[in-house]
């Protein structure tokens, strides 16, 4: 059976993706920072889906260590999904440099460190798929979340280039821009229901995109057009808006 690697396995979306693949019979590799959480999720998947499940402890903010870890994790997964991210309010991040640094470190550098390590091995093997969960926030900088957004923008551009490079090595890259998701990360925010996806919807969209070799997906289709409109607003107007 093929193997899927879930990077940042503790989040609601990551657990949903792991379950969606486990339901298809995939072997699951979970990677996250908290060993107790990893163990709980691993046991649950083994019992519910009766598939092989293993776990790897890593910290996305420790670039060198995670790069080394994923240069050698065995077996090399058929599908690697990079789910982890870090979001604080923009205000917090602006006021406290450690917050800003962590936002950039986890969402950009940390993601690149891990994806690089896996991409190199998949390229050598000549097969596989890398999925990066990026964000619509990365499409245009807005006052409400530009620190997070700029890191995700960097990650999106990285995934574009990675897709181009890996295409010639028979490895595929999917960029996922979920829009709002009902999760722990957004607890406490009031989200418009029509624009908000559940973790399970994101998971299904990911599985579908990998099967169909999609390049960039928005989980709820109208996000593509919302972002198109947002990107079309001329800068001299946009800078005056409160978004």
């Amino acid at each position: 059976m093929p193997t899927v690697l879930i990077l940042g396995a503790g989040s609601d979306v990551a657990q949903a993706i792991a379950q969606a693949y486990a339901a298809k019979g995939y072997s699951i590799q979970l990677a996250a920072r908290n060993p107790a959480q990893l163990q709980a999720i691993q046991k649950d998947i083994e019992i519910r889906y009766r598939v092989e499940c293993s776990s790897v402890v890593f910290d996305a903010a420790d670039f060198a260590a995670s790069s080394a870890t994923f240069s050698q994790v065995q077996p090399l997964a058929d599908v690697a999904v990079c789910v982890f991210g870090y979001l604080d309010t923009n205000e917090q991040s602006m006021q406290h440099w450690p917050e800003a640094e962590k936002t950039i470190a986890v969402n950009y550098t940390g993601a690149v460190a891990v994806c690089n390590a896996i991409a190199i091995r998949m390229a050598e093997r000549g097969s596989g798929t890398i999925v990066g969960i990026s964000s619509v926030a990365g499409e245009r900088g807005r006052q409400s979340n530009f620190l997070y957004g700029s890191a995700k923008a960097g990650f999106s551009v990285y995934l574009d280039g990675l897709r181009n490079w890996l295409f010639h090595k028979s490895v595929h890259v999917v960029t996922v821009k979920p829009g709002f998701i009902k999760t722990k990360m957004t607890d406490g925010l009031i989200l418009p229901p029509l624009l908000t996806a559940s973790p399970m919807q994101v998971a299904k969209a990911v599985v579908h995109a990998v099967d169909k070799k999609k390049n960039t997906i928005y989980v709820k289709w109208f996000w593509r057009y919302i972002m198109l409109i947002i990107k079309c607003v001329p800068e001299f107007v946009f800078k005056k808006m409160k978004m």
Partner: peptide, 9 residues
């Protein structure tokens, strides 16, 4: 409802 994992069977 999110604390919903099987521990052993």
């Amino acid at each position: 409802t999110k604390l919903n994992r099987f521990i052993s069977f």
